[in-house]
Design a protein around this nucleic acid. Structure first.
Lengths: 217, 217
DNA sequence: TATTAATTTGCAGTGCGTGCAAGTTCGTCT
DNA sequence: AGACGAACTTGCACGCACTGCAAATTAATA
């Protein structure tokens, strides 16, 4: 009657599942690197991991998920960190902290992480899947951030902070290739400073655009 | 020997191609609205437009492109407006102008435009395709904006301005449903003010995150 | 009208992804 | 241990997206 999950249920079953999942992810990543992400078939991946094609789809909804190998715990950790952040900490500071800590996670197995990113920017389908997963995260984070800030769910600012921070990270990664030698971290730093201080001090706050062409003088 | 394109070749052929393309787009949109974007097959669309399935793929690379029905001239117009913007105008102001004018375009055939947007947020595949096309636009706009601002191509600020503006628009559209009655335009206004003035006046500029756990005091 | 080029179409084929109905493995209870 | 039930794997059939190829149709040109 103790079907509850109190002790870590490390049965043979759990272990095998983890192994299979890991094998599939590894095979997917390796093959994608070797042959280009769009030239890999699910059949090859399954073969390399020594399972049937059908089993592959029991583990991943799309081929891309296996290559991306997203860790669902990452979002959990981020949410937890957001909850545990100092009460007085300003929202953008919190976001930067979250990102910095997520980067640490990523950099720990830096080899596979940077390889994955190279693949992502290479393949449109991978990129779109990646963005899609990111958008989901953004929604969850925005909701949590709004609550933390004590703002209503429809408020613009929390969402904009999360969205802009995410944009900053994306740009930093994209720019890293061109911007010779600069670390992703320093690029992110620069972007966050811009976001915090304002992107444009000369922005014309009084300008109102009208759909009709009145007031042209 | 005058196989060149000097006069607008409005032969029967050109006309038919336009018609077919329009018919496919219309059928795709109509069916997507009726049955949900994920329950429409290419076969149905082609049937409704009275062409073969194979012909459909001669016009669109993916099913989604027919539904999205993107107008390639829109980006052209935006680029032109960016070039023609007053020399002294601040970058974020320019972006807001671009967006305001693009909104006018969209609102002119508002029926199909808003219908399309409702579809996009409904279907993950549509959304990802949409984002993918948007990312391409962002790159082009960023490059033009960087040039206009006289900054090198690797500079962060132009890209961040374009990216953040695009994020603001996206959020405005997403929030429109919850934010009872507020127009997209006013939501965009609010977002732009936040971006211009700075998302977070209390951002801690001196905080440096380290990968190791030193300086914990 | 005869020639040529563009377009459409059918057909065959690859690959993704899903439901279903076995078969197999594992945990559990007696 | 043996039996039972649940979880997992697998094969099979299927629908759908998309591509290359070659034949057929249609429009433009000489």
């Amino acid at each position: 009657m103790q079907t509850e999950e109190s002790a870590p249920p490390t049965g043979r079953r759990e272990r095998k599942k983890r192994e299979t999942r890991a094998a599939l992810m590894a095979a997917a990543l390796r093959l994608a690197l070797e042959k280009g992400p769009d030239n890999v078939t699910v059949e090859e991946i399954s073969e390399a991991a020594d399972v049937s094609v059908r089993t592959f789809f029991n583990y991943f909804p799309h081929k891309e998920h296996a290559i991306l190998g997203r860790d669902p715990e990452e979002l959990e950790r981020a949410l937890e960190r957001l909850r545990d952040a100092p009460a007085g900490q300003s929202p953008l500071t919190t976001m930067r902290m979250l990102i910095a800590e997520a980067l640490v996670d990523v950099e720990q197995d830096s080899t596979t992480a940077s390889q994955r990113f190279a693949l992502i920017v290479q393949s449109p389908t991978l990129l779109s899947q990646f963005v899609l997963l990111g958008a989901e995260d953004e929604r969850v984070l925005s909701a949590a951030m709004a609550e933390r800030m004590g703002e209503p769910r429809e408020a613009i600012r929390p969402m904009l902070i999360v969205g802009a921070a995410s944009t900053a990270v994306r740009i930093a990664f994209e720019k890293q290739k061109d911007a010779g030698g600069r670390s992703v971290r320093s690029l992110i730093d620069e972007a966050f400073l811009l976001l915090a201080d304002g992107l444009d001090p000369d922005f014309d706050k009084n300008l109102v655009f009208r759909t009709d062409q009145e007031g042209q003088s």
